[in-house]
């Protein structure tokens, strides 16, 4: 089962939605061990929806989601808990517990799921915070640190139990370019040192090019995957116009006015 050649995530013919029509239809893809896998697409195309189904928060209409060889869709009880112990999630809004300090947030999973002595948990929590560059902020409340720090603390909490798979929903959205680049560096470091697999939702182009090993692109109209592969390859060689437009930040031809083609930069140079 831990054979490194089998995919760690195998999604087969997945159809998902929230009770009304399907938001994604018949989606299949695989993620290999140790990869940084990015789900991208425009706003509202169902990236978070796909992620929330992959971590078992909702039940799909159809299809199977194998995490490390076990189908989370049909798993119940103890088996489901075992699968959930192998994954860590950081949510789009951070979802840190506001009444706990950063250290308490990170120590919470350790408290609940390990039998380590108290000072061991404390040290591990501090080490995780150090790993995401938050040393010195252990006793701050989430509301007392910046948005980028909250995201990093959320990642520290997600990696508290050394998960095999880490799901991050838009980790760098809403951050300044420098912080966002630091976060990319952090993700690369973690991927290199923890040998975890990363599944990341993102639509930040620089971060996609910086960290992705493999991407899938979702589309709202198509209700599914419209492209899959390496980001640089998709940007330059995709036959699909929507994909090239996304990677080259172009407005769709129907809404493209005369002015839009002249970027601000070229105006400055004139």
């Amino acid at each position: 089962m831990n054979d490194s050649s089998t995919p760690i995530i195998d999604v087969r013919n997945l159809t998902v939605g929230y009770g009304e029509g399907p938001i994604l239809n018949d989606v299949s893809f695989r993620v290999h061990r140790g990869e940084v896998f990015i789900i991208l697409g425009g706003s509202g195309c169902g990236k978070s929806t796909l992620l929330k189904h992959m971590i078992g928060l909702f039940r799909p209409y159809r299809g199977a989601i194998f995490l490390n060889g076990q189908d989370i869709v049909v798993a119940e009880g103890e088996q489901r808990h075992r699968i959930l112990r192998q994954i860590g999630v950081s949510y789009q809004s951070g979802a840190l517990f506001g009444s706990m300090t950063l250290l308490e947030n990170v120590c919470l999973p350790l408290d609940e799921f390990t039998t380590l002595p108290r000072d061991a948990k404390d040290l591990l929590g501090r080490m995780k915070l150090k790993l995401v560059g938050l040393q010195g902020f252990e006793n701050h409340l989430p509301s007392a640190v910046s948005g980028g720090m909250q995201k990093r603390a959320a990642i520290a909490r997600a990696i508290a139990l050394d998960p095999a798979i880490l799901f991050l929903d838009e980790p760098s959205a809403g951050l300044d370019p420098v912080t966002s680049a630091e976060l990319d560096q952090l993700i690369l470091n973690l991927a290199a040192t923890l040998s975890s697999t990363f599944v990341i939702v993102s639509h930040e182009l620089p971060s996609i090019f910086a960290i992705a090993d493999h991407v899938i692109m979702l589309d709202k109209q198509a209700r599914g995957i419209i492209a899959e592969g390496l980001p640089a390859q998709l940007r330059d060689h995709s036959p699909d116009e929507r994909v090239r437009r996304f990677f080259n930040r172009q407005v769709s031809s129907s809404t493209q006015g005369e002015n839009a083609t002249r970027s601000k930069e070229s105006l400055h140079h004139e």
Partner: peptide, 13 residues
């Protein structure tokens, strides 16, 4: 895993 690394750090500390 990181608990083991934590132990080594603890001993060093």
């Amino acid at each position: 895993d990181s608990a083991g690394i934590g132990l080594l750090v603890e001993l060093g500390r």
